[in-house]
């Protein structure tokens, strides 16, 4: 098990290393000269050259990358080019907000997805199954901004339960922010519920077909005991991986949802940075997103290893 953990952690680090190279390389293709951007259109050639020297822009690519990577690890993320504010606290505060949103999203779609998936599997090919699979298929790839447009008129305008705009103060506590989080979270979760439900359904059906479930019924165990002790324990194991696999999609969905609802999270900060061509901020936001995705995968891997006796017990 320890070897497994170390291997997973090691491979996540390697993946993050290469991913950071990709992020850094892509952002270096930014149109225009960074120094020019910083100093504005009317800067002298000399000033630009000085700033290029100062930013290390004349160094070879790998030196620039290493400088950037080392500073990133140290937490020295520099200042925003636009408002000259230090990036680290800015990104961290937004990350906190995005994390709050992510928690609500997960709390909505993981239980609901599992519940619907198991229900569909148990009522396979009957009406509940067909309804669940059809509805989940409808929402699985519906862009977040489209589903928001279904939700906002209903919940905000018709029922008047929830605010349509989530542009709260960036330092709000979770309790304060919660009412503003629900609608964007639902919009993001709609994509994932269907996916998780579908995968859970498939997994559960596979397990229901196994000999050991038949054996469990023939032991005389009541249905609910077979379901909870024998079926779900095995059927939900892959769900951990499925949720992790969905994390990339979820981060994308949250980004769009933050823009739609004006929620002050990492995604909106990234879009803002892009609109203002704020290179260090773009890089920082992107790396934080990548780190989060990698962490999610790591957690899922470890959880899977922990839950699966084949890995836990050699």
């Amino acid at each position: 098990m320890i070897a497994y953990i170390l291997r997973r952690i090691g491979s996540i680090f390697v993946i993050m290393f290469f991913a950071s190279i990709i992020i850094f390389a892509i952002t270096q293709f930014l149109p225009g000269d960074v120094a020019q951007l910083v100093l504005g259109q009317f800067a002298t050639e000399e000033a630009i050259a000085n700033l290029r020297e100062e930013f290390g822009l004349n160094n070879p690519f790998y030196v620039q990358y290493l400088d950037w990577a080392v500073n990133f690890i140290k937490g020295d993320w520099g200042n925003s080019l636009v408002n000259r504010m230090p990036i680290f606290p800015m990104v961290m505060s937004r990350l906190r907000n995005s994390a709050m949103l992510a928690v609500v999203v997960l709390m909505i779609y993981v239980p609901l997805g599992i519940l619907l998936g198991v229900l569909a599997a148990l009522k396979r090919d009957k009406l509940p199954d067909q309804m669940i699979t059809t509805v989940s298929m409808v929402f699985v790839a519906l862009p977040v901004f489209v589903s928001s447009l279904l939700l906002i008129p209903f919940f905000c305008h018709y029922l008047g339960w929830l605010p349509a705009n989530s542009s709260i103060h960036p330092d709000s506590t979770f309790g304060e922010a919660l009412p503003y989080l629900i609608l964007p979270a639902i919009a993001v979760a709609l994509n994932s519920i269907g996916y998780v439900a579908r995968m859970t359904r498939a997994g559960t059906i596979d397990v229901l077909r196994t000999d050991y479930v038949r054996a469990a019924y023939l032991k005389g165990l009541p249905r609910w005991q077979v379901l909870f002790r024998h079926v779900l324990r095995n059927a939900l194991l892959p769900t951990v991986t499925i949720v992790a696999m969905d994390a990339g999609m979820m981060i994308g969905g949250m980004l769009v949802a933050e823009v739609v609802f004006g929620y002050p999270g990492l995604g909106r900060l990234l879009l803002y940075a892009m609109q203002n061509q704020d290179l260090p901020l773009i890089q920082a936001c992107s790396m934080v997103a990548v780190t989060m995705l990698c962490l999610a995968n790591l957690v899922a891997d470890l959880l899977y290893g922990f839950l699966n006796p084949r890995i836990r017990v050699k």
Partner: peptide
């Protein structure tokens, strides 16, 4: 796959 798809697309298109 370690880079969120939408993020990767945004970065590339932006650059």
């Amino acid at each position: 796959m370690a880079i969120p798809g939408l993020l990767l697309a945004m970065l590339v298109l932006f650059s």
